[in-house]
Every structure is written in C-alpha cells, then in structure tokens.
Design a protein around this nucleic acid. Structure first.
Length: 461
DNA sequence: GCATGATCATGC
DNA sequence: GCATGATCATGC
C-alpha cells in the first residue's frame, strides 16, 4: 500500500516498476484505453499505476510529499549505456506571472524541487505499453547544480522583464532551458508583459546533457572520465557564474603563446596530437588530460577553438556535422539538427598567429542572437528547396569539379554550405535525383559558419 | 586573393 | 568505418 504523505513509500512503490513494462505493472483495465503516442506514457503511468487522474496543477503531483512525477525516454548506446533521448520538459513558463516571482517561491521551484523520475527504453514503432522501464529514482539538485539552475532561471526572467520573451533561446542558459512547447508555432503564441510582440509558448526544461548526468548518477555509472571545474559549491557564490569562473582561469594567460602557457603550467603536451587544444583547455581549467568537463557536458556546451590570422580573420570557417539529404527535407526548422546546434551555448577559445606562434587572445561564452538564427534559417530553407527540387549541380568544369546551387558564403552573412567528406565518392543518398546528371547520391556536405561572421560577431567585442 | 570545392589525418 | 578538425587545389 502506498502512503501518499510519505516520500519513501512512494519512491519504493515506484521502484517496483523497474524492468517491467506498463502492461506488466498495471491493472488489466489499462487495455480498455487506447493510449498512443508521445506524452501518453506519463498519463498512463499516473492513472493506472499510481491511481490518480492526470492534471496540470501548479502543485507537485504528490503534493503532500512534495514529489513531482516525470517519465522520460532513454536510448541505448552500442556499449550498452543509457542516455537521455531528449530534454526533460517541466512546467510551462507563464510569461504574465513569472516575472513577478522570486526563485524560492516560484512556480518552477514549487513544482520541481524534488522529482520522481521514471526512465523507459524508447523503441521505435512499439507500443508505449510495452516500453521497458529501466531506471527509477528520486532526484534533488546538488548545491552546486542548484546555483547554476537558479542563475539560469534568473536569466530567463531577466529576458522576460526586458520585453524579450519572443527572443528566448535554449542557448541563453546552462542546465535549465526555456524550450518551445506546443503543437504548431502559431497556435502556441502567448502574450508577454513588457512587449506587444507575441512570444512562443515555452516550458522550463532540463537540458539533455543534464538529464544524462542524472541518469549516470541513478545508474551509478563510472564518473571517472569527468572532471569538475567547480569542486566546492562555495566557489560559485551568487555573484560568480560558471561563465565568470572559467573566463577568470583563462584570463591569466591572455597574450601568452601556447608554448608559454605549457611552460607556465609546468607540462609538455604533444603539439601534434589532434586533441592538443582540448588538452590545453583542460589543463588551464585545472582538469586532467582526456577528461570531459562535467559542467560543459551538463550544459551541452560546444567548445570551438579558433585560430585567427594576423589580419584578424579566422583561418578556417567553422564546420558542423554533415547532414543527410533525406533528413534535411523531412524535419521542420525547429526540429532540424542545424537549429538544435545553433541554439546551444558555445565556448570559443581564440588563438592568434604571431609568426608561427599561437597567442591566446580571449575566450568567450556565446550563443547566437535571435536575429542571426533567422538569418541562418534562410540558408537551411534554401537547402531544403534545392534538395527537394533536384536542381543541385550547376555545371562541371573540364577538370571534373562540380559547382552547385548550394548557398555560398557571399549569399549569407552568417552561414554557407560546403563539402565535408573524405572525397567526392563519400556520399549520402539524394531524395530526388540530380536533374543535370541523374546522380542519386551526392558528396557529403555540411553547414558552416562564415569566418567573417565569427570575426565580426564573436571575436570582435 | 579569396571563395568554393575536394580531400587528408587522426582518433574513436 | 566514420566523424571531425584541418588543409589543399582550382578557378573566378
């Protein structure tokens, strides 16, 4: 019997779900209901296992015990480990109310301070009632995480108070994000308090990287490969963010060459190693070689090392993962991989050539401004058109070099498309064969950030 | 000289 | 075998 006033009783009842599917764990009446699709897993769990009607109240699901029940899908890696399939979506951000709130008494904190998490293994094309529940446990935030989350919450609130709710982006924050929520964009437009422009409905969410951290803790997986920047929560006082802490560690070496930094830190790195810059970054942050930076993993921060030429232009444009042509035309903008990447937080480390030396100039946490995301969207939209139309190759030079209709650097201030492959024969399938040559596949390409954009919008202050 | 297209090298 | 960061080659 479950005592709804007693946390431990609820948690141990929940843990009986482990290694069972909903069909196995619930009363048979479950079969009389036709629940399908995303989101319904949670509803079935609430109704047929815990025995209460799904609701959208401001109170936690088990309000007497202060526990909020959340279920979320897992995916399994080839090595058998579990990872979050997606971010964990929490309560809706009510723009017209939250700007008046204080964190401690906020709707977010009232509802989500103590979570009861049920992770199930997602399988494509199977019935939600057959998903096997793999991990169950409660979660409350460690002190050092809570400081980051509180800061994230403040960043979101600041933007609403500044009348910029329509420009909220997941890249604004570290562990707690403001993710879009709602079927179609138009239907989910909401009023905001300090601007007439309507803003997309958004919900607080724990970033996928943070959910992975929770999963690893629950599964008690080996964490030795992760090194923490923040060793004692006290370091992160209210006034010091991850951002400031990291920047302060790098500032000590501004103006010094990579070589001088190595000497200063009393070590000798292999300069030819592919991981040379990553190693140097780790050492500056006080972490061991080869470790992953725990705070960066939780916040899904993309680290990019950029080498700047003496004329201030980056030596290279910045590449992103290759896209598959078939996937490209299937996803909407906000579900596209390119959008997902551009709405992340980046950490740039800039070195500048001085002769053959590289001098550390600056580091910068950055996320793409709303207006530039709209600019990059044009490049993506153009690609979707080109690939769906099949008008891909423009002409072939005498030496066999093909020119395409893909968006070029001069076509867009932010981004362009270029090959990124082992050779021309390294290809992905085309959904529509090329009209000029009849080719059914084409060399792998990806989106790039223009070097001039990186110089003007990120490197220059 | 730079933009564009092609490819290499390393490491998992 | 492939992704990723880096570099080379061609041509406007």
């Amino acid at each position: 019997m479950i005592n709804k006033y007693d946390c431990n009783s609820i948690i141990s009842y929940a843990k009986k779900l482990k290694n069972k599917s909903l069909i196995q764990a619930c009363e048979k009446e479950i079969l009389m209901h036709n629940y399908q699709g995303k989101g319904n897993f949670g509803q079935v769990l609430e109704k047929f296992y815990f025995g209460y009607e799904p609701n959208s109240e401001a109170e936690p699901d088990f309000k007497e015990a202060g526990l909020e029940l959340k279920s979320s899908p897992l995916k399994q890696l080839k090595n058998g480990e579990y990872r979050a399939k997606e971010r964990l979506v929490l309560n809706i951000i009510n723009y017209m109310e939250v700007y008046k709130e204080k964190f401690e008494t906020s709707s977010f904190w009232k509802k989500n301070a103590h979570l009861l998490l049920v992770f199930y293994l997602y399988e494509k094309d199977s019935n939600i009632l057959d998903y096997v529940i793999k991990l169950v446990d409660d979660w409350s935030y460690p002190e050092e995480d809570l400081k980051v989350i509180r800061h994230d919450w403040e960043i979101i609130n600041r933007k609403i108070k500044d009348g910029l709710a329509h420009e909220l982006s997941e890249g604004d924050t570290y562990y707690l994000g403001a993710c879009t929520k709602g079927a179609t964009a138009k239907k989910s437009l909401r009023n905001q308090p300090y601007n007439k422009i309507k803003a997309k409905q958004r919900a607080y969410s724990l970033k996928q990287g943070y959910v992975n951290h929770i999963i690893a803790n629950i599964a008690q997986e080996e964490r030795a490969t992760y090194g923490k920047i923040i060793k004692q929560p006290k370091i992160l006082s209210k006034s010091v963010s991850i951002e400031e802490l990291v920047v302060s560690k790098f500032k000590l070496f501004y103006g010094k060459s990579t070589h001088e930094i190595e000497i200063n830190l009393g070590l000798h790195l292999n300069r030819k190693a592919k991981s040379y810059f990553a190693n140097l970054t780790n050492v500056i942050l006080g972490l061991k070689l080869g470790q992953k930076i725990e705070e960066f993993e939780k916040a899904e921060i993309q680290v990019k090392t950029v080498r700047i030429k003496e004329n201030d232009l980056p030596k290279e444009n910045i590449s992103f993962p290759n896209f598959k042509y078939i996937d490209l035309i299937q996803a909407d903008w906000e579900d596209s991989d390119f959008y997902q990447i551009l709405t992340r937080k980046f950490f740039f480390v800039f070195y500048q050539f001085k002769g053959s030396n590289l001098i550390l100039r600056k580091v910068k946490f950055w996320n793409m401004p709303h207006s530039d995301i709209l600019e990059a969207k044009k490049v993506w939209a153009q690609m979707v058109n080109i690939i769906s139309s099949g008008h891909i190759i423009k002409k072939i030079s005498p030496k066999g070099i093909r020119s395409t209709y893909f968006p070029k650097k001069k076509d867009n201030r932010v981004s362009h498309v270029r090959p990124h492959a082992n050779n021309a024969a390294d290809t992905y399938k085309l959904p529509v064969a090329d009209k000029l040559t009849g080719a059914k596949e084409y060399t792998k390409h990806c989106f790039w950030l223009n070097a001039s954009y990186v110089r003007d919008e990120i490197y220059a202050d």
